[in-house]
Amino acid sequence: MIRFENVTKAYDRKSRPALERVTLEVDRGEFAFLVGSSGSGKSTFLKLVLKETRADAGAVYVAGQNVANVPSWRVPKFRRGIGVVFQDFRLLNNKTVFANVAYAMQVLGKSRSAIRREVPDVLKLVGLEDKEGRKPTELSGGEQQRVAIARAIVNKPGILLADEPTGNLDPTTSVGIMNILDRINQNGTTVVMATHDDDIVNTMRKRVIELEGGHIVRDEARAQYTSMIPIVPAAAAATDDDGAPRSRRARLSQGEPDPDVLPPRIERKTGNEVAR
């Protein structure tokens, strides 16, 4: 469904490329997590899939089509096959929940009867059937994200991209969102989700693609993820009895230092300075 062949993307010549010779394939109906620290290239990956930006080298195939060959006037139609969900929901606060979801159909010129038929179904799928008339400002964060998901899938795209959809939500709400994404995935939609949240990755046990500095450093099915820096000496001690690394949240609760307090990119940045 999504195939990257030796894809390199640099935003400007001087700095390190955001993605470098990345090759990977996500099959139809698959659920993949895209993990890695900020700046590892997750967002660039999603942008390349959406043809928001162009690859400098290599080829990106989406639904069997090389995106480089999609002419600019065809890009809107191309994007109708992809739903996107963001960390900050991006809802229209002056419209009701129903109108927000209907908006995605209206701009494509769908008939009023189709909208009246399909929007309630989608809202039911995300569990908001009784909140149709509310404004986003009257909803909780989790509910707002569900509206955003409903809007992303109302036109039945084959692919759903989620860019840290649980980034602004508490753990319990996040679980609800993940259940919805899982249900969407089971209906046949390919889901690619970029995230930092190790708890979620570890509970879902799906394919994990880990990026670091623009390279794929790990690609495992039914895998786990720990966002801590591997060279922390305490890491050895911080394993559970079964050998799996404990989640960051668990470590934090035991009073260990939060690795995120030290920005993980510092090391790399100095490296860059030297290189320049």
Binding site: L50, P76, K77, F78, R80, G81, R90
Partner: peptide, 13 residues
């Protein structure tokens, strides 16, 4: 914001 959403859901130019 509206324009961003329209672009994402594939509204034509």
């Amino acid at each position: 914001r509206e324009i961003g959403i329209m672009r994402l859901v594939g509204a034509s130019k």
